[in-house]
Amino acid sequence: MTMLKRVRRASVVLATALALGGGSWMMTTLPAAAQSLFEERGTLAPMQAEYSFAGKAGDTVTVSMTSTEFDTFLVLNSPSGEELASNDDYARSLNSTIVITLPASGTYKVLARSFSGQGGNYLVTVRAATPYDLAYSRATELYRNGDLDAALPAFTEAIRIDSERPEAYLDRGDLYFSQGNVSATRSDYQAAIALYEKQGDRETAQMLREQLSYLETPPDGSESF
């Protein structure tokens, strides 16, 4: 039987954040790496790519993997090899992000994967976490754990820090909807739609308009809002 193999190059940049004296950061870039795909019995399975960076205990970093071609998945392992965190979808997208305070000094390993079984070009970065990263990550964790009373002001704080990020409005809008606050839901969705339009993402903006319209007029024709 003939085995067909297809290899697609993957553009990868790993920006490694190293803590320096005085709390400043030095960003270094590692060489581009390749991600191999193989096709066997009609099934494509991308190989895992691994990267490492030097971290210092107490540093808070944001590890992200983005792609316009496939659903990404990230894993972060500690210097001892223990899995510290993983993420599939983040900030209302198929991209992956981990925001974490490093528990120890040493070499950390980033595992870049494809969740969907598809591969392609991607970008992996490690950088110092921004105030927005911290606020939004905390808000989503509270929301995921069901602590809505704490999540609501946390999303509001994230929006205060950076009002140009549509995902925070959408998450807060969903939270409002779960509480029955339909006018606040509409307001946050409209703010998110405007931001996606501003960013040139008309497809997402239109999808949200349709979702908002559905929420306002359920299938039975009654008024939701």
Rank of each mutant, 00 (worst) to 15 (best):
F225S: 06
L84H: 04
R9V: 12
Y122K: 11
R160V: 04
T43S: 15
A192L: 01
Q118V: 14
F177R: 05
I98W: 05
M26A: 10
E210S: 07
L30I: 08
K198M: 10
L4A: 12
V13G: 10
A168Q: 08
E203G: 00
W25G: 02
T29H: 07
R127E: 11
A54S: 13
D149S: 11
R9L: 14
E216T: 00
A191C: 00
R138C: 08
D59R: 00
S93R: 03
Y169Q: 13
E141S: 08
N145V: 02
A49Q: 14
S224K: 00
L134P: 06
R209D: 11
A194K: 01
W25D: 13
G221M: 02
A34M: 12
A129L: 05
G21N: 13
P218H: 02
D174P: 00
Y132R: 07
V110E: 04
A85I: 08
G221T: 02
V13L: 15
T125C: 08
S80E: 15
G221S: 02
D88P: 01
S213V: 01
K56F: 15
L20H: 06
S222D: 01
S178Q: 07
T72K: 09
D133L: 09
Y122V: 12
T101H: 11
L4G: 08
A57L: 09
Q48K: 04
F73T: 09
T140W: 04
S187H: 01
T204W: 04
L102F: 01
M1K: 09
V75A: 08
S187E: 12
S24A: 10
D201W: 01
Q199I: 02
P219F: 05
A158F: 05
A205K: 03
G42Q: 10
W25F: 12
G42W: 05
M27G: 03
V99A: 04
V13A: 12
Q179G: 00
T16G: 14
Y196N: 01
M3I: 13
D162R: 12
F225H: 06
S86Y: 12
L20P: 00
S86N: 14
L212G: 01
R160W: 06
A158T: 12
R202M: 15
G55Y: 07
Y189V: 00
A57W: 06
K198H: 07
Y108P: 04
P31G: 02
V63Y: 13
S213Q: 10
G55F: 09
V99Y: 05
L18V: 06
E210T: 01
D59I: 02
R92M: 11
M65V: 13
S86I: 05
E50A: 07
P103F: 00
T43Y: 13
D71P: 04
Y136F: 10
A168N: 07
S213W: 01
Y189T: 00
R113G: 11
S96L: 05
T2D: 14
R6P: 11
V61K: 03
G117H: 13
N181L: 08
S137A: 15
A184L: 10
A194P: 00
G21C: 07
S183L: 10
P79H: 04
K56M: 11
Q35E: 13
R202I: 12
E157I: 09
L84V: 06
S80F: 06
V126W: 05
A135K: 12
G200Q: 02
P46I: 09
T29Q: 10
S105Y: 02
L102Q: 02
Q199A: 11
A85K: 14
S78E: 14
L18Y: 06
